[in-house]
Design a protein around this nucleic acid. Sequence first.
DNA 1: AATCGTATCTTGCCATTGACAAGATGCCGC
DNA 2: GCGGCATCTTGTCAATGGCAAGATACGATT
Lengths: 193, 193
Amino acid sequence: MARYDSGMTETRAYHHGDLRRALLAVALEAIEEVGPAALSLRDLARRAGVSHAAPAHHFGDKAGLLTALAAQGFDLLAQTLTAAGDDLLAAGVAYVDFAVRHRAHFEVMFRPEFYRADDAELVTAQGRARAALRAGVAALPTRGAPSDTDRDALAAWSIAHGFATLWLAGALPDRVGDEPREAARAVLRRLAT
Amino acid sequence: MARYDSGMTETRAYHHGDLRRALLAVALEAIEEVGPAALSLRDLARRAGVSHAAPAHHFGDKAGLLTALAAQGFDLLAQTLTAAGDDLLAAGVAYVDFAVRHRAHFEVMFRPEFYRADDAELVTAQGRARAALRAGVAALPTRGAPSDTDRDALAAWSIAHGFATLWLAGALPDRVGDEPREAARAVLRRLAT
DNA sequence: AATCGTATCTTGCCATTGACAAGATGCCGC
DNA sequence: GCGGCATCTTGTCAATGGCAAGATACGATT
């Protein structure tokens, strides 16, 4: 069968092995090509070389698959932010860079209508990401009442998230260039002074 | 026929009258209920009381309908921003308020994979919105080189857009409350000082 | 090592949808 | 009236999501 000769050392051994992981991998490719809305489970099955009903066994339905992807994404984001360290500007740049480099994950993560927001694994992953976000803001010098920290955190998250979203939507003028980290740094500096 | 007794004075006279407008109206309702991705042309036809192929005549396909909605949305946004005046903070609050009050429009406008980005009417509407955006930022005192105005515009747009997007995604903590204008003002003040 | 239980995957099926083609309906100008 | 045309309907097809039932292979138990 064709499904046995996938060759590469990573995603092979479909039958008993990691079809689940393979499906998540091809799902990322498919989402980068057509977006999360136009994702087709049957297309994923074809890409993975399995029958059209195989994905359902591992994820139940499309929402199940996207839930798994979202959880994976929040974990990855938490990792990325933690690695960026305590500097607010660096964390913001890392946030934008994550959105661009892991576009498929990012586009699923903030579309709760596509997945099951009450999934346990997802919720804990979101918690990790949230904690990593706040860690970056905590390093800011407090400029007033302690409640200002919350406001600052929201402001920082908003500007990074907004820039990333506009970048991905192709809404920004060409003049900002094609280097997201650089462009993000210039904009985020406006707030993180 | 049932399609003639829509009663209200606004969207009546389907056969020769404004099926197009009626379809756009029910599309907004449907999008608020299930999101733009799960929008079904046949469902719109049922809501409007026409046959399943009627929408295709006015919009060609689903992308055509969403293109019309996006153009309508950008025009509405331009209007809203212009009405908000020259104050940057007020413009930002108006932007967020627009996103929440016209959620369906907003959710389509920034998903170019759903519509035809090269549509003429859409492009001009985008131009109007972009101009209105820049007008709000131009009132800011310049704090350096003139190129800073571009940066400031991007920063302001990013923070307002990010806050709006996170609000719509339900990603913000409950503690921000349920009054978008108020919450947005508190966050945007952090930048527009 | 043989067997049983179970996870994994396949085949078959049905309702829904988007898109297209062809036909019906009714308005409007001549 | 009458013809042309925009508008809307009916009919159809391929693709999809999801479900049910069956096949297959692994692993644990004896």
